[in-house]
């Protein structure tokens, strides 16, 4: 089976039965591939945040089922906490969840809740800190003495320490400068290769989708608007613009060049992809 999570006919309604009733998800069916980075993109209010909260059982679907590794996660509601350890959710601006006296203890919070031995916890903390590139000397510091970017890493390490099968990140690079963005998002590929986990990356940025994701799911108004490999999704750039999602500037440049009769091919949505396509074109023309 190559899918790790599958959502079947999921609907979610906020405030059902009150005058403030609002349908956030409407009969959504979607699946996420094992061992891949899947991007989830859509506007504010498209339902992607609701969908994320359904993945680890923070919310219970109004209708439909969520399958993790083929098993309905709400089959036994008492065991929902075990789902939360298997589907690690990094919320938006996760640095606000830090609370413990030292970085080490904060990263160790989830493993401790799992009831692991102190030895095992220490091992996991070191491993997780290593993954996000936190130097060892920071582990004994108070998380409140760190810079914004470092706090973000601590928070992500706090989830990685659970060794989740699925890592879900909601806008992990929000508010960071270009270098900070690259540092955090660039690690996702390594993480997948290393741990074999699956990653779901929620973002507003089409550049992030283009650069870091294998597959992309596009949401619009509580429904799945499109899903497929990154190549497939970006080959239909017009339909993305139709729901108001901004195609990366470089993809627009490539599309316009193609329209003017320059026959480019390849991954025409990242800088490297377009560069290679142009180099290829030049070499081909020289022949």
């Amino acid at each position: 089976m190559n899918e790790i999570i599958r959502l079947e006919n999921i609907s979610y309604i906020y405030g059902k039965g009150t005058p403030f009733e609002k349908v956030a998800l409407d009969n959504v069916c979607v699946s996420f591939s094992r061992g891949r980075i899947t991007g989830l993109i859509g506007h504010t209010g498209s339902g992607k945040s609701t969908l994320v909260s359904l993945l680890n059982g923070l919310l219970k679907p109004t209708e439909g089922k969520v399958f993790l590794d083929g098993k309905d996660i709400w089959e036994n509601p008492k065991e929902i906490s075990s789902v939360r350890y298997r589907v690690g959710l990094v919320m938006q601006y996760p640095e606000y969840q830090l609370f413990d006296e030292t970085v080490r203890n904060d990263i160790g919070f989830a493993p401790r809740n799992l009831g692991l031995s102190e030895e095992e916890i220490a091992g996991r903390v070191n491993e997780a800190a290593g993954f996000v590139g936190l130097p060892a000397e920071l582990l004994e510091k108070s998380p409140f003495d760190l810079s914004g970017g470092q706090k973000r890493r601590v928070a992500i390490a706090g989830i990685l320490a659970m060794r989740p099968d699925v890592l879900v990140l909601d806008e992990p690079a929000a508010g960071l400068d270009p270098r900070g963005r690259r540092d955090i998002l660039g690690k996702l590929g390594d993480y997948v290769r290393h741990s074999g986990a699956s990653v779901i990356l929620v973002s507003h940025s089409m550049e992030d989708m283009a650069t870091y994701c294998d597959n992309v799911v596009v949401m619009n108004r509580g429904k799945i608007y499109a899903e497929g490999t990154t190549d497939e999704i970006f080959s239909r750039a017009d339909s993305l613009s139709a729901v108001g999602l901004d195609v990366p500037a470089v993809a627009k440049i490539a599309a316009e060049l193609k329209r003017r009769g320059i026959d480019l091919s390849g991954k025409l949505y990242t800088i490297d992809g377009v560069r290679d396509a142009i180099l290829e074109y030049v070499r081909g023309g020289a022949k």
């Binding site: 909260s53 680890n56 923070l58 906490s81 939360r84 350890y85 690690g88 959710l89 919320m91 996760p94 606000y96 969840q97 919070f109 989830a110 809740n113 799992l114 706090g158 989830i159 659970m162």
Partner: peptide, 10 residues
Amino acid sequence: KIMNAQKSRG
């Protein structure tokens, strides 16, 4: 929000 974040950490 914070409650959900901590619930996600068990």
